[in-house]
């Protein structure tokens, strides 16, 4: 990994281009780019709100994600572009797939000022509809889709990932099963992911993101 240890004693898990900065006296992670959702900005750095972004929360906790900075990224479930705009600030070519038209409009707005961000209105369950656009061998496959079959989505999109790449998925228990115990639901999803990947870490994301599990994995 090429992540640089931080001068302020950071844990070295932060990708290049993501730095803790001080906003109004608080230390917060930040990236450099045009503001997107009304976040605080200082000297060109935009605060990354861990309560609105699962990836922001993971990096804030020091979870090893495989993001190094300058990576090629396929991002599934980009929604209105809150998180993916930060990713595009520090990563290389970033393909952002979103299924719903309404958030996609905001995603397009975030992409306009970011030449390396490619918004795609596509269904992450049907990779054939964007395999003619998204390149093979991406470094990180990030997934945040609130649909049933989140494990399947990770497996079907394995084809885009480089053999030494990383899967970073946030699994939402209530999208799979509204009433069942979350632990059981997570177990099923992780099991599905393990058919194509070697799981490196799993971590519950409470309290910032309730009933969510972060999964970091490498392709088999």
């Amino acid at each position: 990994m090429t992540a640089t240890p931080l001068a302020d004693g950071g844990d070295g898990h932060l990708p290049d281009g993501v730095e803790p900065r001080t906003f109004d006296g608080d230390q917060r992670l930040a990236t450099r780019g045009e503001p997107v959702y009304g976040e605080p900005v200082q000297d060109g750095w935009r605060a990354w709100d861990p309560g609105r972004s699962k990836l922001g929360a993971m990096l804030g906790r020091g979870v090893e994600t495989g993001f190094a900075g300058g990576d090629t990224v396929l991002y599934l479930g980009a929604a209105s572009g809150t998180t993916v705009s930060h990713v595009a600030d520090f990563a290389g070519p970033t393909y952002a797939v979103e299924f719903a038209p309404r958030p996609a409009r905001d995603l397009v707005r975030a992409a306009e000022s970011r030449p390396n961000l490619f918004p795609l209105l596509k269904d992450a369950r049907k990779p054939a509809t964007y395999a003619h656009v998204v390149e093979s061998g991406v470094d990180v496959l990030f997934q945040d889709v609130a649909t049933r079959g989140q494990g399947e989505v990770a497996c079907r999109n394995r084809q885009f990932l480089a053999d030494d790449g990383w899967l970073v998925a946030t699994i939402k228990a209530r999208s799979e099963d509204v009433t069942g115990p979350t632990e059981v639901t997570f177990g099923h999803v992780v099991e599905t992911i393990e058919s194509e990947y070697e799981v490196v870490t799993t971590e519950r994301m409470d309290p910032l993101h309730e009933d969510h599990l972060a999964v970091v994995a490498r392709p088999r």
């Binding site: 038209p101 309404r102 996609a104 397009v108 992409a111 030449p115 918004p119 795609l120 209105l121």
Partner: peptide
């Protein structure tokens, strides 16, 4: 990548609208 960016932004904007 510049051409890809323009094509993706135009495609997604039109389809969303």
């Amino acid at each position: 990548y510049t051409a890809l960016h323009e094509a993706c932004v135009a495609a997604t904007r039109d389809e969303a609208t």
